[in-house]
Nucleic acid binder design. Sequence first.
DNA 1: ACCTTACATGTCTAATCCTACATGTCAAGC
DNA 2: GCTTGACATGTAGGATTAGACATGTAAGGT
Lengths: 171, 171
Amino acid sequence: MSLRHAVLGLLARRPSTGYELTQTFDRSLRTSWHARHSQIYPELAKLEAADLVEVVGHGARRSKTYGVTAAGRAALRRWLVEAEPDRSQRSESGLRLFLTPLLDPGDRRAIYERDLAYVERELAALGESRARMRSDAEPQVFGPQVELGIRVNTVLRDWLQEQIEASAAEA
Amino acid sequence: MSLRHAVLGLLARRPSTGYELTQTFDRSLRTSWHARHSQIYPELAKLEAADLVEVVGHGARRSKTYGVTAAGRAALRRWLVEAEPDRSQRSESGLRLFLTPLLDPGDRRAIYERDLAYVERELAALGESRARMRSDAEPQVFGPQVELGIRVNTVLRDWLQEQIEASAAEA
DNA sequence: ACCTTACATGTCTAATCCTACATGTCAAGC
DNA sequence: GCTTGACATGTAGGATTAGACATGTAAGGT
């Protein structure tokens, strides 16, 4: 049921169209809950039928902007506060990292370098996010989340650099 | 197709029964690729039919121990080295962390404290893992992975402690 | 002997998710 | 006027995953 709450949560941040949600899933949620538009539109319809969201406006190209209802907000809070979190994850990258030691030093190093390039791009994007937030001067509730992303990716970057050096020495 | 490679990878580390794989998925892989036994047994059958794994022994309670074949090892390497990684993830915990700023300081703090307790348990388990590896004196290829787990969870712990203090100040 | 617990392997159904298909709108550039 | 690309929403069919059902084995305690 996480997709439902992901959609509900994004709409609680800000009313959006299905198209905008799809983009947010791709940009901000790809590292926590990934979803395609083919899941998002049907889910919006179900949420509307359950009166957890409602259409709050119509825009260009027959787009519909959805917002959460009071019931939706309550359901979201209940899920966050009362439901026992499922701590299991699905991350192909994590699985790859877990299995990489099985490879010989040459292959291993190539993989770590590919990952390092990716992490550097992530860090650059997160740095820009933080800069945008700072220049905004508005109160930014999601600032700490960006900060956490930066810290985690920094740890990953340093670790990858160490592994690359170790693989190079081993080869 | 990640499940297939997860199973293949675990068997490449060490020949195992379906039951042992289930436990490893639950203990070591729960943070990267979670799977139930109801997926694992059918997957083993498919892998055997494809000659990527084979039964290498029979044990008590009609258990079968599987090992990877040469073809299986080659398939695993091809996947790790040549296939483009899918960087998207599914993590309910990540989603919850992302949405927590929507709550008021009291609820927020409760959630962060629950998470902190979990992270502390994780760190304790990882610390034990590391201690076991050190006392083993054998070459431990997976040592760096444990080290990464410790570093990431340490960053998370520190971040959670900061957020708890901030929420307390705000309330 | 009996009970409980961990071991061990499977299958079935429903829910979830991905890929591809399908359709149409609007703005900008040529 | 035409083309291209981003915007925008949907559905159908197939693959993957979760949860429940089902069955049987062996060891340890009482």
